[in-house]
């Protein structure tokens, strides 16, 4: 079913203080990773409205990555704790509507962790490749 040349399309929401800077660090360190994700910069991972995630999946994104500061490192004290609760709930919701919860991933990546950003990208792309394209691309989740 899956086209051999198919490449997943991934959206990444990255907080500007830690993870966006971590992605920058991967760049300045020239660490190579697959070109599947597009980063949207937000002030805090806590800004990521569940609606953004659902909209991305509805628009047939194959995966959504949310990247924020490690616990305790949040520039806004506690935004990332709220993110982690939202993502946990949202994963349950995805199951309910017939989407694989693995399509939504949450990672804590600090400004120094360019390597982790690249490794996360590699791992996530591989995982999504195993899952195949977003089921909505083929007319909706199978019953």
């Amino acid at each position: 079913m899956t086209n051999k040349n198919w490449e997943p399309k991934i959206v990444c929401f990255a907080c500007r203080w830690c993870s966006y800077a971590g992605a920058d660090m991967a760049g300045t360190s020239r660490i190579q990773y697959p070109a599947n994700a597009r980063v949207i910069r937000v002030n805090c991972s806590g800004r990521v409205d569940p609606q953004f995630i659902l909209r991305a999946l509805k628009l047939k994104a194959d995966g959504v990555l949310i990247a924020g500061c490690h616990f305790g490192d949040c520039h806004y004290i506690s935004g990332n704790y709220q993110t982690s609760r939202r993502v946990a709930l949202l994963k349950e919701y995805l199951k309910e509507i017939g989407l694989e919860p693995e399509r939504l991933r949450l990672e804590w990546i600090s400004a120094a962790e360019g390597h982790k950003f690249a490794e996360t990208m590699k791992a996530f792309v591989n995982e999504i490749k195993l899952l195949g394209p977003n089921p909505l691309a083929n007319g909706g989740p199978e019953k």
């Binding site: 002030n43 806590g46 800004r47 409205d49 609606q51 953004f52 520039h75 935004g79 939202r86």
Partner: peptide, 24 residues
């Protein structure tokens, strides 16, 4: 930070420069 915006069930609050419209 926009944590309030992500929590609001009605999209009634948003940080400037990172609004719903802009991200959507």
């Amino acid at each position: 930070c926009g944590t309030c915006a992500a929590a609001c069930p009605n999209q009634a609050i948003a940080p400037q420069h990172f609004t719903m419209e802009q991200i959507i």
